[in-house]
Design a protein around this nucleic acid. Structure first.
Lengths: 136, 136
DNA sequence: TAATACTCTACCAAACAAGTAGACTAATAT
DNA sequence: ATATTAGTCTACTTGTTTGGTAGAGTATTA
């Protein structure tokens, strides 16, 4: 299950995608539209900015906006930043790999199944972008 | 990511699948072979028994064994018992559905993506069984 | 009846999730 | 210049989950 944080992040990005090209959007506006606690949302947007998914402008007329066009950012990229690994086991994660110390990976049947699962999941999440998060 | 608990459970079931038809297997034996803390494993096996994945026999010569043939139990069934929902969001879960109170599900773009992801994941996990967990 | 082996209840420490509070800093309009 | 706006940063809180451990109880069978 995705954490609330990830869900909020994706929702917020969907909204920013719908406003793309129209200048900065206030945190407060996103929070209201997407029913997200303002201060919590702040930390999420900041994290996404630090990872070059978002950019921001301070002061009057400021706000947040997408760093790239909606189509340029995959959902997998966003999820890895907020949620962490997409695979179900560390030993099959492409971006957060950690070796199993308690099993022989060469002939681990569980690993094989989870690698297949990871493949089909990533095939979707790498292809879907922020554009696909625009509601309606 | 799957919890340690689920991983242990699947590992243990893989071992029991490999021993299927050969009578009860001691918790301690499973624990040693699969490098799982004994007392922690106890609670996992008990949970699986309470959900009719396993059966057990007490006293000397006792132990745990699969309730059904390995092929009869899907990985999805096991994961739902130990881990809970397989879907990434409650509002797209088939077995643990909870409605979103903060978004209109009819036109939620995020929901659509997560439903697709759930479909491909389940297509694998419903088809794979304990037999597929036998190592080597 | 003694030994075996599963069952059940209780407890625990550390990590994480989800959020709150408030001071600080940068940018802009007037 | 300066007031206002709006993002940035640090710190804290509260509750839940994770990953265990300890030990008494109960059923079975040799």
């Amino acid at each position: 299950m995705l954490s609330q944080k990830t869900k909020y992040g994706l929702k917020a990005l969907g909204y920013l995608a719908s406003q793309y090209g129209q200048g900065p959007v206030l945190i407060a506006e996103i929070a209201t539209r997407k029913k997200i606690p303002v201060k919590f949302l702040e930390s999420i947007l900041l994290l996404l900015k630090q990872n070059n998914i978002l950019d921001s402008k301070k002061g009057k007329g400021g706000g947040y906006f997408l760093f790239d066009a909606p189509k340029q950012t995959s959902l997998a990229a966003v999820m890895r930043i907020i949620e962490g690994p997409i695979a179900m086991l560390p030993c099959v994660s492409l971006n957060f790999y950690k070796k199993c110390n308690d099993c022989n990976e060469k002939n681990c049947a569980l690993k094989k199944v989870m690698a297949i699962t990871r493949d089909v999941t990533l095939k979707i999440l790498e292809k879907k972008t922020l554009e696909d998060l625009i509601d309606e």
